[in-house]
Simulated assay, not measured.
Amino acid sequence: MTSSKVFTVGVIGYGLEREFGEDLIEGINWCEAVENPEGETVKLQAFPVPISEVYYRDRPPWDMVIDRSSYLYPFALGMFFHHLYQGVYFVNNPLTFEFWINHKFLTYSMINSLGIPVPETYLLPPHSQDGLSQDDIVHHKPFDWKRIEKDLKFPMVMKPNPGREANNVHFVHNMEELWRTYNGTGKEIMTLQQLVKTPDSWFVRCICVGRKIIPIKYKFGFNDMSSYIFEENFLEPEIGRKIIEYSKIINRALGLEMNSIEFMIDSSGTPWAIDFDNPVPDGRRSALGDIYYKDYQSALVQLVADVVRTGRKMEFMPSEVNKFNEIARSEAPVEEKFRKALELAELYYRD
């Protein structure tokens, strides 16, 4: 190796993410130097993202940002959009991060079109809307509740289209519960989804960072208070293969390098992707346990090193997302769309 450079990494994490962020900074700073494509020795240096005023002529003080909290702090998003435009590498790209997390219904539609099983889903207009009178909504049609019941069948899951941390998720078992729950959603735009029937008491949550995909057995908990169960090789090989392939396609189709994806496995062994746009996977050591926590941290450190080693740059608007969208919208048979999507995703996951 020749000469020496420094690659700076900003880490942002609030609340429950503070411990994760502090440990990640330490891990990056302890990482061995990396050789970039020019043969230069590059030292990785991480620090917390400072929040202050931003002048549009200033250059950002970092080469990369690992974003674990901007969804909690809108000012950070404005700052990050600007720094993305200036060439900073983000995990995740703030444009795709912010867009997908607020439009989950679109992800259900697109991912299903790529040949991945996704539960039947409806998007519901908000129960109420500020600034609109009854005269303004004269052309709104009554819901066809009978059609919804026929397509989804009870029980169903109602959850926000802009989903975060499993907040405001409801399980409804009959029409009376459905109406009562919907009437209580106020201005929130909700999705209504078929509940996949599973013989298991657990789901599968994949923590995905860079090229690392970690399937974990877990039990759902409201407000992202899920519990994780350490068990190696808990998936049958064929089911495990499908979950990894599905995860690769989902991550690349959404342009996410840090994500968690949830699957339910039905009685026939089919894994259903039930939630897959979670660009800040749960980082609580108390929930993950030491093994998964360390795996997660190591994968992020490796991702930083890979970006430096390959000299990879971040596009302002990810062109790869358009390629997956073109496949999803094509008239090809679903098996062919899945094959093409997997081939495209594998370009990222190859060593």
Rank of each mutant, 00 (worst) to 15 (best):
P94L: 03
G87N: 02
Y71P: 00
G87E: 06
A76F: 03
H103N: 14
W100K: 08
Y89V: 07
V88P: 14
N102R: 15
N93E: 10
F81C: 04
L95T: 12
F90G: 00
I101V: 08
F75C: 01
Y108F: 14
T107K: 03
F80N: 05
F80D: 01
L106T: 08
E98A: 15
T96F: 00
L72P: 00
T96N: 06
L95S: 02
T107Y: 09
T107D: 15
L84S: 10
S109T: 14
L106K: 07
F80Y: 13
E98H: 15
L77T: 10
L106Y: 12
S109D: 14
V91P: 06
F80M: 07
S109Y: 12
G87T: 05
Y73G: 03
H103G: 08
N102T: 12
L72V: 01
L106N: 09
N92P: 05
F75Y: 14
F80S: 02
H82L: 11
L72W: 02
T96M: 05
K104Q: 12
L106Q: 15
F75K: 11
I101H: 01
S109V: 13
L106A: 14
P74W: 02
Y71D: 15
N102Y: 09
L95E: 09
N92D: 12
F81L: 10
F97A: 06
N102G: 12
F105V: 06
L84V: 00
H83V: 02
F80P: 03
H103I: 07
G87P: 11
V91K: 02
V91Q: 06
I101Q: 13
L77N: 11
F90E: 00
P94H: 05
T96K: 05
F75S: 07
F99K: 06
F97V: 00
Q86T: 07
F81N: 11
Y89D: 04
K104N: 14
K104E: 08
L84M: 10
Q86F: 13
F75W: 08
G87S: 04
T96R: 06
F99G: 07
S70Y: 00
F80Q: 10
Y89M: 03
V88R: 02
H103M: 09
G78C: 01
K104M: 15
N93S: 08
A76C: 07
L72N: 12
